[in-house]
Design a protein around this nucleic acid. Structure first.
Length: 306
DNA sequence: AAGACGAAAGTGGTTGA
DNA sequence: TCAACAACTTTCGTCTT
């Protein structure tokens, strides 16, 4: 598996408020203005070469292929300047011809309802992924998924945005990037309820296995959000491992479970965060954290002195 | 004053007849 | 289709730091 770097925090000041400036192609910290990365756009090839021979074979020109543009980025445009390849001005007749060609060429690119649908949906997916700060592989996964949905004619009677959002949610799950239904819903104009409906519908129709989310996947999200150390993270994960082993997690919401483990870990390492803080970032209530926390400390014999 | 604790009532979704 | 049910939330009063 290729490891992708997912930047969620400013490398200068640690702030999590990062702004993506796509005009400039930069990832900028809102807090201190530090430019973390100036290569937001992926100019690399979509393939990987394992040796020189492969590299030689696979070399080709053009932008990398992507599934997020309706024609996979394979597009040609006819230049609008009335000049030929040598830079000479075209004769009036030639330039009229070029104009007509341009017009029909443009029309043929996004042809028919299906393609327009796809183009709209993919731009929608892109928007959602920006809002949720998702890495590119999730966006690609969602795009592939959406294409499949379109191919199987499953969008009929459902809104494009709804299906797009559901695809994105599934893609997140498949890539083990935790985004709740609420978060995805709030990045779109779709209610949580409808998103859930669409999600279940797609799951039933498409033979896609979506691994159930374990509480562990939440921990890194909370740790990032609350700016806790790696020690705290690994302790929280250990607590969860033990809890799973002792079957304390069955039937419990993973978010609450992870929140409680994070809370305990933060107290143990002295980086204490309040229940309220963790509750807010976990989108559960303090009461739930308290209940899980009580169960965990009792059953696992964790002594906490404050 | 803020955080932690816990009781009690309310909510939305699942399950099984 | 409906009621029972478990998990979770909301609300609120009390205790602790």
């Amino acid at each position: 598996m290729e490891q992708r770097e997912i930047i969620t925090r400013c490398t200068e000041c640690g702030s999590i408020d990062l702004i993506r400036d796509y005009e400039a192609g930069e990832l900028v910290c809102e807090h201190c203005g530090f430019v973390i990365s100036s290569t937001l756009l992926d100019h690399g090839p979509e393939w990987r070469a394992f040796d020189a021979e492969q590299r030689q074979k696979r070399t080709r020109v053009g932008a990398p292929l992507t599934w997020t543009i309706h024609d996979k980025g394979l597009s040609t445009v006819i230049d609008w300047r009335g000049r030929d390849i040598y830079g000479r001005k075209l004769k009036p007749m030639q330039s009229a011809w070029a104009y007509r060609m341009r017009k029909w060429h443009r029309r043929s690119k996004v042809s028919g309802a299906t393609d327009r649908n796809l183009a709209f949906a993919l731009s929608e997916l892109t928007k959602i992924s920006y809002k949720l700060n998702l890495p590119k592989n999730v966006l690609e996964t969602a795009s592939v998924l959406y294409r499949r949905v379109v191919r199987q004619r499953l969008i009929r009677g459902r809104s494009i945005q709804g299906v797009a959002a559901a695809s994105m949610y599934i893609a997140c799950r498949q890539c083990s990037i935790i985004r709740t239904l609420e978060e995805v819903a709030s990045a779109t104009h779709i209610s949580k309820k409808e998103l859930g409906r669409n999600y279940r519908f797609l799951l039933r129709k498409i033979k896609t296995k979506v691994p159930p989310v374990g509480p562990q996947s939440y921990v890194s999200k909370f740790v990032n959000h609350l700016i806790l150390s790696g020690d705290t993270e690994s302790i929280a994960l250990k607590i969860l491992d033990l809890a799973i082993e002792m079957r304390l997690t069955s039937g419990r919401g993973p978010a609450g479970m992870a929140a409680a483990a994070t809370y305990i870990a933060s107290v143990l390492t002295g980086e204490r965060r309040t229940q309220g803080e963790i509750a807010r970032s976990a989108q559960v209530t303090e009461v739930t954290i308290r209940n899980r926390y009580k169960e965990l400390t009792q059953k696992l014999n964790i002594k906490i002195d404050i």
